[in-house]
Amino acid sequence: MKDAINDAEAPGTCGQKLEWDDPIAMTQQGFKRFRRRKGRNSSDPEHDTALTGQPQSAPNAPQQGGENAREMAAAARSAQADEGRRFARRPESSRNRPLEGISDTDPKPQRLPANLPEMWERLHRVPLDIRGHQVARSPLVNFFRNSPTANAFDLLRTRLLHSLKAQGWKRVAVAAPTAGCGATFSAVNLALSMARVPGTRTVLMDLNFRRPGVASALKLPPAGDMPGFLSGELTLAEHLIRPAASLAVGLTAAPDRNAAEILHDGRCASVIDDMVLSTSADVTLFDLPPVLEHDDTAAFLPQVDGVLLIADGTRTTAAHLAACEKLFDGQTQLLGVSLNRARGAGLLQFGQ
Score class of each variant (00 low, 15 high):
residue 11 P to K: 00
residue 16 Q to A: 10
residue 17 K to V: 03
residue 25 A to K: 01
residue 26 M to E: 02
residue 27 T to A: 04
residue 35 R to I: 06
residue 37 R to F: 04
residue 37 R to M: 12
residue 38 K to T: 07
residue 50 A to Y: 04
residue 55 P to Q: 02
residue 60 N to F: 11
residue 66 G to W: 13
residue 69 A to Q: 13
residue 74 A to K: 11
residue 76 A to V: 10
residue 77 R to W: 05
residue 79 A to G: 14
residue 82 D to P: 00
residue 89 R to Q: 13
residue 91 P to C: 04
residue 91 P to E: 11
residue 94 S to D: 15
residue 97 R to F: 11
residue 104 D to P: 01
residue 106 D to A: 14
residue 115 N to Y: 02
residue 117 P to D: 09
residue 124 H to V: 08
residue 128 L to I: 11
residue 130 I to A: 15
residue 134 Q to S: 00
residue 140 L to D: 08
residue 148 P to E: 13
residue 153 F to M: 09
residue 156 L to Y: 03
residue 160 L to T: 10
residue 161 L to F: 10
residue 163 S to T: 15
residue 163 S to D: 14
residue 175 A to K: 00
residue 179 A to G: 13
residue 182 G to C: 02
residue 189 N to V: 02
residue 191 A to P: 10
residue 198 P to S: 11
residue 200 T to L: 13
residue 209 F to N: 04
residue 218 L to P: 08
residue 222 P to E: 06
residue 223 A to S: 11
residue 228 G to W: 04
residue 236 L to P: 07
residue 239 H to F: 12
residue 248 A to T: 06
residue 250 G to L: 02
residue 265 D to K: 02
residue 266 G to F: 11
residue 279 T to W: 03
residue 281 A to N: 03
residue 281 A to P: 02
residue 282 D to L: 05
residue 286 F to Q: 01
residue 288 L to R: 00
residue 288 L to M: 12
residue 289 P to E: 07
residue 291 V to A: 02
residue 295 D to I: 15
residue 297 T to H: 00
residue 304 V to K: 05
residue 305 D to G: 09
residue 315 R to T: 14
residue 315 R to Y: 04
residue 325 E to P: 01
residue 334 L to S: 05
residue 336 G to V: 03
residue 340 N to D: 05
residue 346 G to C: 02
residue 348 L to S: 10
